[in-house]
């Protein structure tokens, strides 16, 4: 049971960590100063969230692993994030569309997770929800601005949405761990989250004057540790110092 809970928390932690790691790449390179700050701010929230979740996962596991042990000393196949998180940042339209899909998911997910019988997770969810609300507002506004902006911004966003949409069904593919966690009153009902997410995506795409692309294929596998080719490079960069000089205090 505690191993299921561990896996469950690790998934959430890895999503936040890998998304935060990618988003932080924008720092100092945003399209203008205010947005540079906003992107860094979101990345900071995500890294903060990852720290809470990975620390708690280590606690639940009971093997003495810290947030840093989990972030820096697991290999690619042991990470459990959705594939969408690890994709390279791309242009601002790609980043916006990814954040929008993820923010909308996180918002409904953490809103439901507040009711978890696990009080630590419920508390983390309550804190996280406030951030998610702001993130979702921010990325939705950009979806509309880019979709209803210029011909170029619309073309870029259309392409980004088409590229990213196949990665979203992974959000809702419940497996055994999800089921066990839900039975224990911890995990959230992914079908409900899926309905809310789909409504929100449709609403914002409509406002952005974009058509929702049909799903001709889907991508997934992150939850089984089957990642994209990008993941190894992301980890090589993120873990380089700890792996070069293991066992030290930083």
């Amino acid at each position: 049971m505690s191993s299921d809970l561990f896996q469950y928390i690790i998934r959430l932690g890895d999503n936040a960590l890998i998304n935060g790691q990618r988003l932080a790449e924008w720092c100092g390179r945003g399209p203008f100063l205010e947005e540079d700050l906003a992107l860094a701010n979101t990345a900071l929230d995500l890294i903060g969230r990852a720290r809470m979740l990975l620390s708690y996962a280590g606690e639940v596991e009971g093997q003495g692993r810290s947030e840093d042990d989990l972030a820096y000393f697991r290999n690619e196949r042991e990470f459990r994030n959705f594939l969408i998180m690890e994709l390279p940042v791309g242009d601002f339209a790609f980043t916006t569309a990814r954040q929008f899909f993820v923010d909308a998911y996180d918002y409904y997910y953490y809103r439901a997770l507040q009711d978890a019988t696990d009080t630590t997770l419920a508390a983390i969810a309550a804190k996280t929800l406030k951030e998610c609300e702001y993130h979702l507002r921010h990325s939705s506004e950009w979806m509309v601005r880019l979709g209803d902006g210029t011909a170029q911004s619309q073309a870029r966003l259309t392409r980004a949405v088409a590229e990213l949409m196949p990665f979203t069904p992974e959000f809702f593919a419940a497996d055994e761990i999800d089921q066990v966690m839900q039975e224990q009153g911890i995990g959230v009902d992914l079908d409900t989250v899926a309905t809310l997410w789909n409504n929100e995506v449709d609403r914002v795409l409509r406002e952005a004057a974009l058509a929702r692309p049909p799903l001709s294929f889907t991508r997934g596998g992150g939850r089984q540790g089957l990642h994209s080719e990008h993941m190894g490079f992301l980890l090589a960069e993120m873990q380089s110092l700890q792996r070069t000089y293991p066992g030290l205090q930083w």
């Binding site: 932080a24 100092g28 860094a40 890294i47 903060g48 960069e237 993120m238 110092l241």
Partner: peptide, 29 residues
Amino acid sequence: QLPEGNWITRAPTLRRKAILLAKVQDEGG
């Protein structure tokens, strides 16, 4: 922001990563 930003993705602990990111963001501010 650039010379320090160079180390955000490679900061050796998550705490250091958060501090550095916050710092570089302050500079933008």
